[in-house]
Design a binder for these strands. Structure first.
Length: 114
DNA sequence: TTTATGGCTGTCA
DNA sequence: ATGACAGCCATAA
């Protein structure tokens, strides 16, 4: 890696943040970006997660968009899989297929100490 | 190199 | 609540 655009520290940082999202909680792309020190680069988070071929222990399903919805992507039906995974963790969806971020949103109290 | 999307978001009508 | 727009960055043609 090194010169590779995606596979360097930046993605690693994103993954590190996603890894901290507790089970049963969700975070938004923008939130992850900010916690990773990449303010305003929410889209990059989506790319980093999209680049994951395997989970690698990274709970990608816990990252949703700022509306509280599971973002649809290229692969049809994949958003449903994500939803099922979240529901299995206890995250509940509204009739409008939305998650109440006020209730299930992840709120880290502190930055990681090290 | 330029263009066109793409697991996004905040602001403003 | 909805829709248009502009930032931001990656990847594929």
């Amino acid at each position: 890696m090194g010169d590779g655009a995606g596979s360097d520290r930046t993605y690693a940082r994103i993954y590190a943040v996603v890894k901290r999202i507790p089970k049963g909680r969700v975070a938004t792309y923008g939130q992850v970006a900010r916690l990773a020190g990449l303010r305003g680069q929410a889209r990059r988070v989506g790319y980093a997660l999209s680049a994951l071929e395997d989970d690698r222990g990274i709970p990608w399903q816990r990252v949703i968009n700022a509306r509280g919805e599971v973002s649809p992507r290229s692969e049809p039906g994949f958003d449903l899989i994500q939803r099922v995974m979240l529901e299995a963790e206890g995250v509940r969806f509204d009739p409008e297929n939305r998650v109440a971020l006020s209730r299930f949103g992840w709120r880290p109290r502190r930055q990681r100490t090290g």
